[in-house]
Structures are given as C-alpha cells and as structure tokens.
C-alpha cells in the first residue's frame, strides 16, 4: 500500500506529472476535434505508429539519465533500414540472420559511442554528433543516394501486422506488443542494481565512483541500450514505412524532445523512464492533432523546437523555485 502510494507520488510529483496531464489534454482536444479517433482501429493505428518513438525514448532515457546525450539514434535507425534492405534483398530466408547482424551493429555503435565518451573523455554531444555524421555519410556512400535491395515480407511483419480479430480491439499490432515489452523491460531495468547505479551516476558521478560504482561501464551500457533501441525502432519503421534514404532523419531531436517533455532532466540523475515514454506518446499525439487540424507537416520541426525550449525552461524554473526546500530539523 505504501509502495503504491510512493509510486503514485513519484509519478505525479516532480516534473513527471506534467507529461501525463499534457497527454490527457492533447487527447481531449483530439477527441473534441474528431470523436471518431477514439475507435479501436484508429487508436491501434496510432499506437502502431507511435511505437518506434516510444522505444527510442526508452533507449535515450538511459543515456540522458546517466548524464549524456545520444544524437546518433536517428542516423542509426536509417542505417539499420538500409542495411536490412541491402542484406536481405527480398530473400525470406535471410530475415532472421540479418536481424541478428542488425542487433550486433546496434550494439557495436552503442559501444563505440560509450567508449569514446567514457575512455577518450569526448563529450557525448560531440561523440554522437560525429557518429551521426559518420553513419549518414556511410549510408550515402553505400547506397549512392538511393537505397538498393528490398525487405522481405517476414521482416515487415512486426512493423505492419498484428494479431487479428481480438475481441473489442480488432487488430492488435505487433509493434504495440513490442513497445509494451520494451517499456516493461526498461522499467524493470531501472529497478535493478544496474538502473539504480546508472541514475546515481548521472546525478553525481564522483559520489557514485567513491561508492564503488563502475561509472564508465554503466554509461557505456546505456549507449548500448540506446543502440539496441534504435535497432528495434529501425525494424518497426522499416516494416511500417519501407526503405528510403531519409528514414530516421531528425528522429534524434524528436526523441530528445520526447524525453525532455517527460520531465527527464538533461544532465542526468532525474526523471522516470515511464515518463520519457509518455513524452514520446505525447509528441505523437500532438502530431496526430496536427493532422486532424490539417496543419502542414512542415510545421513539425518548429513545434518540436519550441517544445524542447519550453520543456527545459519549465524544468529550470521548477528547480529554481525554493518550494520543497524545507530542511528537516535534526
């Protein structure tokens, strides 16, 4: 009972509660504009489309809460889709081995990001910005501007298909189930020793190190988790939208916006993974609202920019406010 209450307090307190309120408000507006949206089929379609961003947000959360950034995820999503198309080249039998290759590639990119950041002491902002450029360049070079090859039908199942004829819901997309599984895994991970050490490291790495934490190891592991999340997101997006050289472009900013909107503090040590994922859902809901209002999609980057500034400013104001500064008597 007490545990439930403290969980509720954690969800509603701090910068976390805001994102759920915001999500509810946006859904309410969507409902007001188009009551038809709240049918099983369109809700499922919404969740299917939102799943990759939610998964990326969980991956990005690990990196941000440990005190770093991962700007390379968008390029990694793009690289993964291009790799999949090129290596599978329409052959069903290659699907599973290629997914294995993609997972290894995602881990490798995360490992390089992590090691360059922790061992070479390059700021993660620079490390992953460099990785972003390297990956984009490599995609261009490899594809000559237009991706070749094609995805297999079975590769496209997780992003496109679902379990059919579920009572009340109709089709339940695989993407939704994968999103729920990833989200549950992320929440579980943050409750393990790894997660506890990770957030303490992001809060105060010196104190963590003096407590015996392997600060560099957990931070590198966070980058690997982000690389894995980009791989899974790549599989879903490739399945959903198919192959193009533009896949993933700009997603790093969307996902960082989502995480910040979830009340996760840049610089590390504060925020909940569930709120980061809620932030991703909120962004997707906002884009849906734009569609409903028939606003041009070209407006999205500007809106994202405004959101990220507003969210960080809001968080900074919250921290400046002396509220809660009630020192306990001893």
């Amino acid at each position: 009972m007490q545990r439930a209450r403290s969980a509720a307090a954690a969800l509603l307190g701090g910068g976390t509660g805001t994102v759920f309120a915001l999500l509810a408000v946006i859904f309410a507006i969507v409902f007001a504009v188009n009551p038809g949206f709240f049918q099983a089929a369109s809700l499922m379609a919404f969740l299917k489309q939102a799943a990759p961003l939610v998964i990326l947000a969980a991956g990005q959360y690990f990196v941000i809460v440990s005190g770093n950034f991962d700007l390379s995820v968008g390029a990694l999503v793009g690289a993964q889709v291009v790799i999949a198309a090129r290596l599978i080249d329409g052959e069903e039998a290659r699907t599973v081995p290629v997914i294995g290759v993609m997972l290894l590639f995602g881990i490798a990119v995360g490992l390089v990001n992590g090691l360059v950041t922790t061992v070479l002491k390059v700021q993660s902002f620079i490390t992953t910005l460099g990785m972003l450029l390297v990956l984009y360049g490599a995609i261009r070079l490899w594809t000559g501007g237009a991706p070749t090859g094609s995805l297999s039908e079975s590769f496209r199942v997780p992003g496109r298909m679902g379990i059919e004829n579920v009572p009340l819901l109709g089709q339940v997309p695989w993407a939704l189930l994968i999103m729920i599984a990833c989200g549950a895994a992320a929440i579980w991970l943050m409750r393990t020793r790894f997660g506890r050490v990770l957030i303490a490291t992001g809060d105060n790495d010196l104190a963590a190190e003096l407590s015996g934490a392997r600060v560099d190891t957990v931070r590198t592991a966070a980058f690997v988790l982000s690389g894995l999340s980009a791989t899974i997101a790549g599989i879903l997006i490739g399945g959903f939208a198919g192959v193009s050289a533009q896949v993933g472009e700009g997603m790093e900013f969307t996902v960082i916006t989502a995480v910040v909107l979830g009340g996760v503090v840049l610089g590390g040590g504060q925020g909940l993974v569930v709120a980061a994922m809620a932030g991703a859902l909120t962004i997707e809901a906002l884009f849906t609202l734009f569609n409903q209002l028939a606003l041009p999609a070209s407006l999205r980057p500007s809106v994202q920019g405004a959101i990220i500034i507003a969210a960080v400013a809001y968080a900074a104001r919250r921290r400046m406010r002396p509220a809660g500064q009630t020192a306990t008597p001893s």
């Binding site: 020793r193 957030i199 303490a200 104190a207 963590a208 015996g212 040590g269 504060q270």
Partner: peptide, 27 residues
Amino acid sequence: TEDRKAQGLAMHQSVRANARLVLDANR
C-alpha cells in the same frame, strides 16, 4: 568523505537510493 555534497550523496535521489548505493554498486 569530507565533502558530502560533492563526494557523498546523489542529491536528487531518495534517502533509500543513497543508503543502498554502495550495496547496489558492489556485487
């Protein structure tokens, strides 16, 4: 340690999280 803010505590974490940090960090 001498300086509890810089070296001792993760200030934005709970009492419990701080109190168990050494145990969590060392198998």
